[in-house]
């Protein structure tokens, strides 16, 4: 039975991989990642207000993360239950960020 399991999955995922991710697409993702990085370094010297700059960096970082996880790590072409299983736990990290940054600012008032 394990053989059947093995065969079933390997065929399914390989067919998908062949159709979904090809060399052309890989290089396209590379150029996007490189372009975004150069853009980030470029605007870090501009006179854009600091708050807007920071949120731009966060947004662009998430864009890069989407392309790396989605295409390079192939998650975009996996089945939906696997995608949710992997992504859902990161809600806890969002919670941790909000909690800790709020606490960090409050701590700053105490220290200084």
């Amino acid at each position: 039975m394990s053989d059947i399991h093995h065969e079933f999955i390997s065929h399914a995922s390989e067919d998908k991989a062949h159709s979904a991710l090809n060399t052309k697409l890989i290089w396209k993702v590379f150029w996007i990642l490189l372009g975004v990085t150069i853009f980030e370094v470029g605007i870090s010297f501009s006179s854009i207000p600091h708050t807007i700059l920071i949120w731009t960096f966060v947004a662009l970082t998430l864009v890069k993360a989407y392309f790396i996880v989605g295409y390079f790590m192939h998650l975009r072409f996996e089945v939906v239950p696997l995608q949710w299983t992997i992504l859902l736990p990161f809600i806890l990290i969002v919670y941790l960020i909000i909690l800790c940054l709020y606490e960090g600012v409050a701590l700053g008032y105490l220290v200084y």
Partner: peptide, 13 residues
Amino acid sequence: LVAYGTLRHTHSG
């Protein structure tokens, strides 16, 4: 990274 962000906010000055 969150720990970094927290203490950076604490010592932002």
